[in-house]
Simulated assay, not measured.
Amino acid sequence: MLKIGCHLSSAKGFYAMGKDALSIGANTFQFFTRNPRGSKAKEIDPNDAAALRDLAKQEGISHILAHAPYTLNACSADPKVREFAHMVMQDDMQRMEYLPGSYYNFHPGSHTGQGEEVGIALIAEVLNAILTPEQTTTVLLETMAGKGTEVGCTFSQLRQIIDQVSLEDKMGVCLDTCHVYDAGYDLVNDLDGVLTQFDKEIGLSRLKAIHLNDSMNPFRSHKDRHQKIGEGSLGLSAMERIINHPVLRNLPFYLETPNELPGYAKEIALLRSLYHEKQE
C-alpha cells in the first residue's frame, strides 16, 4: 500500500491532524513542531497526543514526520543563531517523545561564508549535543537545493555530517524530489543512477522518507520552489516512476506542494491511481 500524506497545520492539535489526514485519503502526515518562521511552540496536551496515538493504531497511520522551523541554522557564523538551533532542537526532541517512533526532519543550514567543512562540523556538533540513546525519534537530514551557502545539497555533505555524529543510529535522510533535482541529481532521466549514487555515498538504509514535490524551476537551477505534482519540471511520469521504484515504493511520501486540503486530496488520489499495488 502506498504510504502517503501531506503537510498539515498543527494549530488544532495532534488528533485533529490525524482526522484531517484520514479525510483526504492519507495514511501519514507531516507537521511543523512550532511556528515555521519563529520559535514559539504550542504547549502539548498529553491527552491529545494519546488520542492521536490511538487513532493512528486504529486507522493504520504511521511514519509521522515532524518538521523543524525554517528559522534554524545550526551552522551559522553567529553563535547566538547556533545556540537558538540547539535550544529548539533539544526541546523538540523532548516533545517528540509524545509520538514515539516518529521522524524529525530539519534543513541542515547555511554556513554563511565559513565554508562547507566548518558548516558540516557545526551541524554535527549540535546533533551530538541533542541526541540521546534513549530517544525513539529518528532525526532526518533533508536534501537541499544548493541556494547560496546551503549545506546538504550533495549526498557527500550529508554523509560527512552523519559520519561526525556519535549516535548515528538515530540519523537518517529525507530526500526532497524538488531539491535534489534542482541540486543537479537527475531524477527524471536517471533515477536508478541517482539512487545508486545515494547508496554509494550515504547508504540506502539511511533513506527513511521522501518529500514528493514537483519543481517550478529547471534541472540544476539551485532554487527551491515547489510545484504541484505533474505541473513542474519533473512531470507526472517521473513522479509515477519514483513512487513505484523498488527502492522507494515502501517508504513514506509527504507532499509539500502549494495546496490546501482539497488539492492534497486530489494529488493523493492521483498518486494512488498511479501506484502499482501488484508489486506488493
Rank of each mutant, 00 (worst) to 15 (best):
S205T: 13
T138D: 04
Q160D: 15
D163A: 08
I161G: 06
D214S: 08
E125G: 10
L65Q: 10
A26W: 00
S10V: 14
H107E: 04
N217K: 13
Q157D: 09
S62Y: 05
F29I: 01
E43D: 12
I44N: 02
Q164E: 12
Y254W: 03
V118I: 14
D78V: 09
S9Y: 00
L131V: 01
N47R: 11
H245A: 05
L141M: 09
I162S: 07
G18D: 00
D20E: 14
E277P: 09
F14D: 05
I24T: 03
E83F: 04
D224Y: 09
L274R: 03
G184V: 10
V81A: 14
H63A: 13
L72N: 01
P218N: 02
H276D: 14
E168V: 13
G232I: 06
S215V: 09
C6G: 12
L2G: 01
L140P: 04
V88Y: 04
N259R: 14
P46E: 11
G5R: 03
I243L: 04
E256L: 07
C6K: 00
Q90W: 04
P108I: 05
Q58F: 12
A11C: 15
H67Q: 03
C174S: 13
S110M: 13
L261D: 10
L131Q: 05
N73R: 05
H86V: 11
G263I: 10
T132E: 06
C6T: 14
C153M: 14
G119C: 02
G25W: 01
D186Y: 08
I202A: 03
Y264P: 05
I24E: 00
H245V: 11
I4W: 05
G152E: 03
P252K: 03
N217H: 13
L8E: 05
P246V: 06
E260Q: 14
P262K: 07
A66N: 02
L122S: 11
Y98Q: 10
S62H: 06
E150N: 08
D20Q: 15
Q94M: 13
L270H: 00
M239D: 03
A269S: 14
R272M: 04
Y275N: 10
A183M: 09
I161N: 01
Q227N: 14
H63L: 11
K208M: 14
T112E: 15
D20P: 06
D224T: 08
Y185P: 09
D214L: 02
R272P: 01
D91K: 15
C174V: 06
S233D: 13
E267Q: 12
E117M: 08
G119P: 02
A11L: 12
L234I: 15
G193H: 07
Q157P: 05
G115Y: 11
F84I: 12
E116R: 07
A265W: 04
M96V: 06
D48T: 12
A26V: 01
Q94V: 15
E231L: 13
T136L: 07
A26E: 09
G101M: 08
F32H: 02
Q30S: 15
R249T: 09
L99D: 08
I61C: 02
D54R: 14
L158W: 02
G230M: 05
V126E: 12
V151R: 00
A49R: 10
P133C: 00
D163T: 06
F32C: 10
E59A: 11
